[in-house]
Design a binder for these strands. Structure first.
Lengths: 89, 89
DNA sequence: TTTATATTTAGATATATATCTAAATATAGG
DNA sequence: CCTATATTTAGATATATATCTAAATATAAA
């Protein structure tokens, strides 16, 4: 958590695109991976960074792990950026 | 410009702190540098990345270069984050 | 023009990161 | 238990980045 991890997580294009995908609702790691031309291991790496940053939550469901967007951390980013402009939120 | 350069620029702690300093108004590269324990060359590097991202503007004034926060790029970041949540702005 | 100050650029280096393949772990179903 | 599928972890590698010192550029002032 924290703005450091949030910004680092967002500094990679693939990870931002993962978040864009998750706007439409939770997806399994495999489903997410199908949208990108990277190995499963690389996808797992990106997901773990997004999870560490709190930008996604993971829900274990049987054989699958569903990932979903965590908007509260997005709100924290917006709040940080707003303060830069001297605004309360 | 673009969200890629913006996020990369924000992914470094020193650069975020520079932006925080600039909330109080424009400062010269030297003044900014005095707040950090890095060389002038390193400070110049950070300022160039912030400038490339459009997060700061530079105003040459005689022997000095004043840097100031460019809030319009901060607005673009906020807009991008808001769209992640499915909001218009 | 010469000297001093402000800032950037060049070149080097150590650390961080994105990626891969191969192996390990977890769960489901026969 | 055994096999198949989903995902992660381990280890390797190439690129990117943050930092430094030294040199270059720009402007001001003597």
């Amino acid at each position: 958590m924290g703005i450091q991890k949030t910004c680092k997580a967002l500094s990679d294009r693939t990870r931002r695109e993962i978040l864009d995908l998750l706007k439409n609702g939770p997806m399994t790691a495999g489903e997410i991976g199908m949208h990108f031309s990277v190995s499963g291991a690389t996808m797992s790496h990106h997901l773990s960074i997004l999870k560490e940053a709190g930008l996604v939550l993971d829900v274990h469901q049987g054989k699958y792990i569903y990932y979903e967007l965590n908007t509260s951390v997005v709100d924290e980013l917006i709040a940080w950026a707003s303060r830069l402009k001297g605004e309360s939120s």
